[in-house]
Amino acid sequence: MTATKLRIKSTFEELATGNRAALITFITAGDPNMETSMQIMDALPDAGADLIELGMPFTDPMADGPIIQLSSQRALRSGHNTHRTLEMVKKFRRKNQHTPIILMGYFNPIYTYGISDFCHDASTAGVDGLIVVDLPPEEDEQLRKPAKTSDIDFIRLTTPTSDTKRLPRLVTNASGFIYHVSVAGITGAQTAKQNSLKKSLSQIRKHTDLPIAVGFGIKTPKDVMNISKMADAAVVGSAIVQKIADGSDSSHMVEDVIGFVRSLSNAVQTGRLDQ
């Protein structure tokens, strides 16, 4: 099981050696259906995704904007559920042993699945990390500890409201990497202002040695390039999910999505060249 634990760590170490940031791509599992979603997921590493965030659909995603809300609805309408999400991870791992997979979602589907069963099954399927949006440190012990036992990183979030008083609590017991939510808001929101983001990142850096990924409001190759100069990883979610929504009737959809991811990847490849 230590093999899983190493994927996130070694990915970031490798990239640091090559002096480049990671590209983390988010898709919602089962969007628009399991077969298409699986095709996209399988193609992400070759297109340049260094880590994959796989969203677990939920009916009431209160931290998500309309784009990801709709992707959850499409997935659920196609009959998707948590078991199928883990099934997708299992299938992915048959072909790919190195790309880290982080499940991202809300606590209720995990709680209903049964916390220890979920951690066990997720770990066996090949999941490396968990981001649970509605589980702040005050409540996360119930999942963080079983996840650790199953060798899954529990990834903590920092936000623009995380002040110096709050930060130590957030980074204690964090593992894998820190996910910095760059704007106060929901996914697909405005892009953060460069200066305030830089300030937040240097603040967080003082409290932890873990890699820092930046997400929320990162939509274009240019955004990714900017982030790649400041942080260890850039997360793109809504912009990719929107491509899936736009092309859901078209036979070229998977190619379009993958083409977009490739353009994001070029941005992280070249992001630090001028530094």
Partner: peptide, 8 residues
């Protein structure tokens, strides 16, 4: 059970 942004 809220987003970290709201905790403070």
């Amino acid at each position: 059970f809220v987003a970290e942004t709201l905790m403070p």
